[in-house]
């Protein structure tokens, strides 16, 4: 089971991350989970093989301050989350404007559970079957 070490809010996030950097924690990654009504964003840090996880709750559609100024490694993952979940990160060092992984004509926010955003697998029989089942 995963342990969540700390809950953070939009205001305390950047300060907390900067403090962790100073304390010698290594940035591992970020994980976004769509919980239907809101997003959970986990910030995973590591020190001496121990995972230290922060959790941030974000209302949809989601605007979050970027931590890429404090921690450059977060830049790539934040751009990826922008693509896949449509969350906007403010103050990114390099902003690919939601076309980092996805081409301009690709489906938007493919990882969101928002009704109306369908996964476009046009000719796939499996996808059609699922639609019928629903």
């Amino acid at each position: 089971m995963m342990k969540i070490n700390e809950e953070v809010s939009l205001e305390t996030l950047v300060g907390k991350v900067a403090a962790l950097q100073v304390a010698g924690y290594r940035f591992v990654t970020m994980t976004t989970v769509d919980c239907d009504d809101y997003f959970d964003i986990y910030y995973h840090y590591d020190k001496d093989y121990e995972l230290y996880t922060l959790r941030l709750k974000v209302e949809k559609p989601g605007v979050v301050p970027s931590i890429s100024t404090a921690c450059f490694a977060a830049l790539i993952i934040e751009n990826e989350i922008q693509d896949l979940f449509g969350i906007t990160f403010t103050g990114l060092v390099v902003d690919y404007e939601k076309h980092f992984l996805l081409a301009p004509d690709a489906p938007e926010k493919p990882f969101c559970h928002v009704p109306g955003v369908k996964i476009t697998t046009v000719d796939s029989p499996a996808a059609k079957k699922e639609e019928v089942a629903e």
């Binding site: 995963m2 591992v28 990654t29 994980t31 976004t32 989970v33 769509d34 986990y42 995973h44 490694a73 790539i76 993952i77």
Partner: peptide
């Protein structure tokens, strides 16, 4: 990062691979 919700399908499966880091 894996999250299950009691059904046979996972709620979230996230992979951070070494090259990404």
């Amino acid at each position: 990062y894996l999250k299950g919700n009691g059904t046979d399908k996972l709620a979230r499966c996230r992979v951070r691979t070494p090259t990404f880091a």
